[in-house]
C-alpha cells in the first residue's frame, strides 16, 4: 500500500469536514432561514380602550407580548420591556384572560411599555398563536411570526433569539 493512497484515506474526510464547516460558518445567513415563519393569525379584537385593532398595526418590526395583571413573571420582565420601548422598539401587548379594569389599573400603576394592548379576555387570539401561558413574546416582521420566546424575556434570550433576526430584517436587501 503506497503512501499516496494512505494519505488520501485521511485527506478525503478532512476535505469533506472543511467543506461542511465552511457552509456552516459562511452561509448561515442563507441556509438558516426560518422554518417556523408563519402568518400572524387573523383576528377581530379591540384594544383596552375599546377601539378595534387593525391588521396594519402589525406591519414592520413589532413585538407582541402576552401579559396579564395576574401574571407575576410579567411584572418581572416589565423593566426589560420598558427598556426596549425606550430603545424605540414597538411593542404591542396582548392582554390575556384578564379583566379590562384590572389590566388598565396594572398599566397605570407600573407604566405601559406598549403602543397599545389587544384585549383578549377569552384567549382566542392567544389560542391561535399557540400561547401556552403568560408571558410569551413574539417577534413579528411584516405580519409574519419570525421568532418566539416562552416565559420571561431576558437580555440573553433577546440577544440569542430576536436580535439576529431584527438585524437581518434591517439590512437593505
Amino acid at each position: 500500500m503506497n503512501m499516496f493512497l494512505r494519505s488520501l484515506i485521511v485527506l478525503l474526510p478532512v476535505l469533506i469536514l472543511i467543506f461542511f464547516a465552511k457552509i456552516l460558518l459562511v452561509d448561515d445567513e442563507i441556509k438558516f432561514k426560518d422554518f417556523e415563519s408563519k402568518n400572524f393569525p387573523e383576528f377581530s379584537l379591540n384594544d383596552l380602550n375599546g377601539d378595534p385593532v387593525r391588521a396594519q398595526s402589525l406591519d414592520g418590526i413589532k413585538l407582541v407580548n402576552v401579559w396579564a395583571s395576574w401574571c407575576i413573571t410579567c411584572l418581572v420582565e416589565h423593566p426589560f420591556l420598558t427598556k426596549l420601548s425606550g430603545q424605540n422598539f414597538k411593542i404591542i401587548g396582548l392582554n390575556y384572560k384578564d379583566s379590562n379594569a384590572k389590566a388598565v389599573a396594572w398599566l397605570e400603576k407600573h407604566g405601559s411599555p406598549f403602543l397599545f394592548s389587544i384585549y383578549d379576555p377569552r384567549g382566542d387570539l392567544a389560542f391561535d398563536l399557540g400561547v401556552t401561558g403568560a408571558p410569551e413574546t413574539f417577534l413579528i416582521i411584516d405580519r409574519k411570526i419570525v421568532a418566539h420566546i416562552q416565559g420571561e424575556i431576558t437580555q440573553k434570550k433577546w440577544d440569542a433569539i430576536f436580535a439576529p433576526k431584527i438585524f437581518k430584517a434591517r439590512q437593505p436587501s
Binding site: 494512505r6 478532512v14 441556509k31 438558516f32 417556523e36
Partner: peptide
C-alpha cells in the same frame, strides 16, 4: 430546528472521532 452552533459542535466532534479512527487505520494499513 436550525442552530449553527449545534451543527458546528457536532461537525467538530464527530469529525475528530472519525478522523482519529481513519487516521489510525491508514497508519496501520501496511
Amino acid at each position: 430546528a436550525n442552530d449553527p452552533q449545534r451543527g458546528l459542535y457536532l461537525l467538530t466532534f464527530s469529525g475528530l472521532i472519525s478522523l482519529f479512527a481513519i487516521g489510525v487505520f491508514a497508519y496501520r494499513l501496511p
